[in-house]
Design a protein around this nucleic acid. Sequence first.
RNA 1: GUCCCCGUCGUCUAGGGGUCUAGGACACCGGGUUUUCAUCCCGGCAACAGGGGUUCGAAUCCCCUCGGGGAUGCCA
Length: 479
Amino acid sequence: MRVRFAPSPTGYLHIGNARTALANFLIAKKNNWKFTLRIEDTDMERSSKGSEASIINDLQWLGIEWDEGPDVGGDRGPYRQSERFEIYREYTEKLLNENKAYPCYCLPEEIDKVRKEIEKENRPFVCPQKCGEMNPDQRKKKESEGIKPAIRFRVPPNRVITVKDYIKGNISFRSDNIGGDFIIVRSDGIPVYNYIVVIDDALMEVTHVIRGEDHLSNTPKQVLIAEALNLPVPQYAHHALVLGEDRSKLSKRHGITSVELYRKEGYLPEALVNYLAMLGWAAESGEEILAIDQLVKQIDLTNLAKSAAVFDFHKLKWMNGVYIRNYPLDKLTDLMIPYIEEAGYTIDAMGRKKLEDLIDLVRGYCEILSDVKKIIGIFLDEVSIPDGEADDLLKEDHSKEIVALAKEIIENEVNENNFHETLISKIKEQTSLKGKKLFMPLRAVITGRLKGPDMHAALQLIGFEKIKKRIQYCFDKYK
RNA sequence: GUCCCCGUCGUCUAGGGGUCUAGGACACCGGGUUUUCAUCCCGGCAACAGGGGUUCGAAUCCCCUCGGGGAUGCCA
């Protein structure tokens, strides 16, 4: 058994496509099926090698792997449709010879006009020149005029096509109702998707087509092609689409839709995979946080949701935070380093152990990796300029007392080796202040904020010299 | 317009004739822990689109309406 993911390289990997790819991957893994990646690049104007590369890159980042594809090869290639035109030509000849397809000499502009009329009157589409009814002489005449025809597939009248779908059940279409004879080869000789998808799936021995619901209406056309060509019809599973907040198809105006941007913002692939899998599906166990091997275990072709799902950025973020909190510390550290550097800090000098301690302390404040930029300054800035709240607090008399005391103690009574254990307790001894009155000014001086990580742990990580500077800074500023 | 799909808390969903005064998660609101914040824990708010059937009994089956989505390309 075999599944496939067949993106067209006309842009970045969209979140909706990533979900389709993931569904194919999970199902393949679960059943021990093979997975083929095929590039559908017949739209020459919009396709690019660059976007093929970026799609492959994003797929790999997500942890989706395939057995056959343009990058890894395989016995059923080539895996780019643009490299398979010879193959399609044979089938087109066959269809033409058997009169199951015919050249159409009508111009796109003429057809647009007719389509509009048809829409109003609700009758089946027939091309204006009735090319399907032409005899060889008429065709020869057209050819001699130099008109390059498109090829249309002759849709058999009055047929009922039933598509069996794992998710939707049995769906019936009437052949008279699928829009008339449709084009399978453009006038420039390049075949179109609805046609060659059938050939490729058959030749690549795809047994199960798992794809978005937007392809459901195309399916009867594809079934008809398969019949005409005597090719096998795969099993179908059309999953529901991903929607934006306003319940229309997810697009850029709803927020980020490219997998690449999620990566750059600092989402973890494990979290994105987990979230995407949960969108339109629920584990029998009721668990929401599931690693990929658990997803593989629990997901099934028959328990995917039928209805469309709104993409909830908020919940993705929450889920990513859960992953950050539970991630292996050394891996998380590696992933956060670029963001820390991006924020302008150099980390070479501090040593791995200290860095990891630091990351461990701040990870609880991060939902995405880039959040580290907002909090890491507490530890790495030389001096922390108090923010609004901290500034207000430090202007108060009891704060001034503590700042003065802290300055005295750090200069004369403690040293680099014992300050983190003794500084706070010594201040406590020498003042009548306690509780918030004691801790909050201290926090304000040392971190420049009123909110943040545990003071005792922070003290050591910030370091003696910086703390001294920060106290001095506040002493000068608020005395 | 026509064809096709779908309709349970704001969102993702569980449920498939009685066990449903409808369960979980995110969000939101309270409370606890943390001398702060975040985390964590506990609690609360909140839904079967509407109307007809079928049935002793309907969120669950059928029909209609309404709502949403998709397709209707010489895009995929």
